[in-house]
Each structure stands twice: as structure tokens, then as C-alpha cells.
Design a protein around this nucleic acid. Structure first.
Lengths: 326, 326
DNA sequence: CTGTTAGCGCTTTCAA
DNA sequence: TTGAAAGCGCTAACAG
């Protein structure tokens, strides 16, 4: 026996499919008796509406597509949690699609979302906005997260610049004069903005040395080890993200360098690990970003004439033991 | 102008919709010229197939539903990453649905998946399997993860018992005689199995004290503090998961108790934090579990006559600095 | 209040 | 090799 359809219910209740649809969807114009019969028949047959068919008919899926790069664990789950919280509260599902591969596979993934979702949340700090725009399935409402986009469309962005500035002011206020920045990957706009904001906020009497990194803990460790070997003097490290800062911390510890007495260390993101290890950092609340993104998208979907909006989220400086002693 | 449909393409290419369908899906029986015209027209119009309509027609969505409880961050992302890796490699999407609420909302979430997904991966260590079975949308292929299910249907389970036994043997081999177990939540089958396996593996000359916990770091910390206050002697703590073990560690450190000299500490899960903090634990590789679950489900979906299978995954003991000195 | 019917966009017999 | 048409399961006019 196949799944019961609306027609089976109609037959069993001896009414038309239209009445079943109306009864089940709680429309007003249904006689109580009819409704009762329909409900009974539906329960009897274990009828479950076919969401796919419903979507096709309504041109509404109540699902939102989520396209993410291969995020570090904590980031990923916090972001998805935020998205899910808002989405499910408002009756939407999440359709996930990691964008690990290069452009080609990603474009493919995006295309297959057409007709499955009502809108898209897309995060791509490492991809040219023009490329993204080109892949987008036509007029699908979209909100981007941390994408270096021009105007037009909804966008949520972390104010990396402001965050990095806050870190700069903090380190300078501590009297640090020879500061090292471990940068993120080249093409990454977050990384770029953090570096620029940091550099711009340093007074001229502070030396800044920039080392390459790739956001991985290992790269932070290596950069720091190289630094130590080179014998250059420095009194602070600001890594473009927490994982690299933790790597730096490890290298310093291994070399017997006192933190924060000799070298202060700051990161960016405030991953759970950072709190645990008392790392001074810039807090980026991914859960909140996720729910805001979902909220904005759903608003755009449901509220007619919702204006596209660019929202800049200012992250907060969290001072912990890697920059100050108690 | 609305989205181009297959009909627009047909008109533009001056062929029937059937030919468009055949051409676009790469069927053999299409004249090269026709195919070329269709491809040109499709590209010209920016045509993207409507996945929803396609699904309805094929009775195949190429999506798998994922129903999870509110997992701790690292768990969640690792599991989802594993699922996604396998799913996207085999051309499937993931439709997420967190099961935070009690049964009612969860059942609702499950129902709305009917007609949107081809199968379900469901994880619910805290819910009665009978309840789950009752909510399942009819004959939807399903694989359960760590669900205390009876036979029937696909199931992946971590061998909690074996893991806990390994920990017991390890602690006993270290000569520990007064061991404390901080347990997980009452209704949770993982927690239960870990306790049972642990208890069963301890020789009679070892004292075991069981304290309640709820898998949160705070509960591990509190339990340990209470223990210290009570003044009972103990030389090892085995927490039912890593987060509680970390809480215990913190409490011990705060009280100036030497780990592992005075008290050895073990956890369960091997979350990233555990590695970082050198916690002895039992490794549960969630990424692998995720991809295996997806693989099994897709096999069941695509391979005719794939036998339902119960797979027991044995986790490994990872010895680190909280139980042995180097 | 209820039933009939025409789609939603696509695939797939079945004939030609 | 192609086209016409039925149909996937549901909703929404439009008549009664």
C-alpha cells in the first residue's frame, strides 16, 4: 500500500479533494461535520500532506537554502544554530549546502536549490561578489554574510575594521610598541579588513610587522616560531583569528616566553576555546548573526516591500589574561 | 519577467517540452541538432530546472532529512560535516531540523519532511524508540544514530559500553581504587550505557561512587566541588562526557589537587577541547559516524534489497596527561 | 458550504 | 527521433 494521498482521504470521507484541502488547512468555509469527517479519515489513513506537492502548487517551499564555506567547527554550528532557531520559530526549514569545492561545484549546488527554497543565506568571505552574483539562481531573495558585496541585496557584515581598531587601541593603551600581526588568507575579505583596520589604528610610534597565516592554528604556531627564531624583538601579537592566536600562544609557551608580561596576545572571533584559555579577543556572536540573517531573509520573503538592508555588526573587545594580568 | 520554465525553452528552441527534458537530461534518443538548439535556448534564457517540480514528477527529491537534538557545538558540526560530505558527494542535499522541543513540535517537524526528502537520519539518545517510530512519516527509509532501538531499520550505534570498559581497565591498571563517576542525564541512553559498562568492568576491590550530572561543564564542576567539600577520598574521576570532565578538571585545579598524581580524570567523546587540554578520553569520531549514516541511508535508497543493518562502532581509548604523566 | 477543474514544472509513456 | 498528453499531489479560482 502506497502513501495515502489527499484523494484517498477524500474518498474515505466521501467529499471532494477541495474540501479535504480546505478542512486540513483550517479554512473557514467548511461545515463542521465535513471537517470532522475529513479529520477522521485523515487520521484513519495516517495521511501526511506531501510537502513537495504543496510547495509546487503554492510556489512557496518554506525552506531557506544555506550556503557556507567549510567553516571551522564552532563557527559552523553556532551560525547554523542561529539560523535554525529563527527559521524553525517561523516555520521554515534549512537546506544545507557546503561550498567546499571551487566555483564549479558551488554553482551546481546553487542551481539545484532552485525550486527547493524560497531564499538563500550565503556566506563567502573568500569569493568575489561578482562571481557569486553570477551564480545566483535568478531572482532568489538572498542575504549575504560577510561577503565583500557592493550595494543591492541584503547583507550582514561584521565590522572587522572596528574590531581590529579596538584591539589596536587596547594593545597601545598597554604600552606595546612592537606589534606583530599574523594575517589571514590572502583573498579573504575578513582577514584583509582586520589587517587594514588594525594598521590604521596604530599610532606612528608603534612598529608593525605583518606575517602571513591561513587561519589555522598550525600557521599561527609556525609564524610565531619563525619569529622567535629570527630573534626580532616584539611585545605583542595580534592574530587575525583565534585559532592562530592559540597557535601563537602555544609557540610562546614552548619557548618560555611570559604572556602577557613579555608578549601580549590577542585574537579575533571569541571561539569557545578562547574563553576557556583566557584569550583576549574580539567577540563575534555567530549565533546572533545566524538568527539575524534568517530573520532578515524571512522578512524579505513575507513582508512586501521590505527594503534591502546592509547591517554592520560591531564586535566587542573581550579582555582576558593574555593581555592583562589580574 | 518570471523565471524561465521548460516551456519557455521549448518555445525558444522550437521543439516540444519532451525534447527539452530529454536533451537536458542527457538521454540518448535526441538528435544532435535538437540537443544543440535546446542547450543554446536554455543558456540563452538562463534556464534553471525547478528541482521541486522535478522531485514531484520523479518521486525522488535527492535530499535527506536530518533530525538532531540540540547538540553541543562541536558534536553538531562534526556530525553534520560527515553527513554533508557523503551526501553532497553522492548528489544529495541535507534538510536540517533540530528537535529542540518536546515531542509535539518534533512530530510536526517530521511530518513536514514528507515529500521533501527521500530518507531520514535521526539521532535521539534521549527519546523512547517507540515514540520515534510512531512519529516517523510512514515508510520513509531511516537510519538512527545512537538511538536505543530494537531491531528493524538501519542503526548506527557507538559502543558506549565498550568505551566505558576501556576506561575502567585503564584506570584500574593505574592502580586507582576509589573511583567517582559523574553520570549523564537520566533518560539518556548513552549516559546509561556508559555507566553500566563502566560499573561492570570494575573489579570488586574498587569502590565506585556515582554522582549525577547533565553533560554540561558546569555540572561536572559542581559535582566535583561537592565531592571535595564532602571530604571523601577518591583517586579518579570518570565523567560520562568530556565537558563534565573538563568541569571536574577545573574544580580540581581550583582546589589545588594534582592531576593525575592525586586524581586521574577521564572523559568521553574526545571533543577538540579535550585534545587541546590533554584530557584522557574515549574517542567518538562524529564525522565518520555522520558519513557512515549518510552512506547507509543512500545505499538503502539506491540499492535495491539493501539489508537493514545495525552497526556498532567501537570507540578508542585516548590516553593523555590527565591520567598518566609522561 | 461544496465540487469541478485547471494548473504548479517536470518526466514519461505511447503513438507517430 | 519527436510530440501530445497524462500525471506526480496539492491548491485555488469558479460555479453551483
Amino acid at each position: 500500500m502506497a502513501e495515502a494521498t489527499i484523494r484517498d482521504v477524500a474518498r474515505q470521507a466521501a467529499v471532494s479533494v477541495a474540501s479535504v484541502s480546505r478542512a486540513l488547512n483550517g479554512l473557514a468555509n467548511v461545515h463542521p461535520d465535513t471537517r470532522a469527517r475529513v479529520l477522521a479519515a485523515a487520521k484513519d489513513l495516517g495521511y501526511v500532506p506531501h510537502a513537495g506537492a504543496r510547495s509546487l502548487s503554492l510556489a512557496r517551499t518554506h525552506a531557506i537554502g544555506v550556503v557556507l564555506p567549510d567553516l571551522h567547527g564552532e563557527f559552523f554550528s553556532e551560525l547554523v544554530r542561529g539560523l535554525d532557531r529563527e527559521a524553525s520559530a517561523r516555520g521554515y526549514h534549512l537546506l544545507l549546502s557546503n561550498m567546499h569545492d571551487k566555483g564549479d561545484h558551488a554553482a551546481q549546488a546553487l542551481r539545484t536549490m532552485h525550486g527547493r527554497v524560497d531564499g538563500l543565506v550565503i556566506m563567502a568571505p573568500h569569493i568575489d561578489p561578482a562571481v557569486i552574483a553570477a551564480m545566483l539562481p535568478a531572482r532568489l531573495p538572498t542575504v549575504t554574510i560577510n561577503t565583500p558585496s557592493g550595494p543591492g541585496g541584503n547583507a550582514l557584515r561584521v565590522d572587522n575594521r572596528a574590531g581590529a581598531e579596538a584591539m589596536a587601541h587596547h594593545l597601545v593603551a598597554l604600552g606595546r610598541k612592537r606589534i606583530v600581526h599574523i594575517a589571514g588568507p590572502e583573498g579573504n575579505s575578513d582577514a584583509q579588513e582586520r589587517l587594514e583596520g588594525f594598521r590604521a589604528a596604530l599610532p606612528s610610534d608603534v612598529e608593525l610587522q605583518v606575517l602571513p597565516g591561513d587561519f589555522s592554528q598550525a600557521s599561527g604556531e609556525q609564524a610565531t616560531e619563525a619569529l622567535l627564531k629570527a630573534g626580532d624583538a616584539f611585545d605583542a601579537i595580534f592574530a587575525a583569528n583565534d585559532m592562530m592566536a592559540l597557535g601563537a600562544l602555544q609557540a610562546l609557551r614552548g619557548a618560555g616566553v611570559a604572556v602577557p608580561q613579555e608578549v601580549a596576545v590577542g585574537g579575533f572571533d571569541d571561539v569557545p576555546l578562547a574563553r576557556y584559555l583566557s584569550l583576549t579577543t574580539i567577540r563575534v556572536h555567530m549565533t546572533e548573526i545566524g538568527s539575524r540573517a534568517a530573520a532578515r531573509l524571512i522578512d524579505a520573503l513575507e513582508v512586501r516591500g521590505a527594503e534591502p538592508l546592509h547591517e554592520l555588526i560591531t564586535p566587542a573587545l573581550i579582555v582576558r589574561a593574555t593581555t592583562v594580568t589580574e
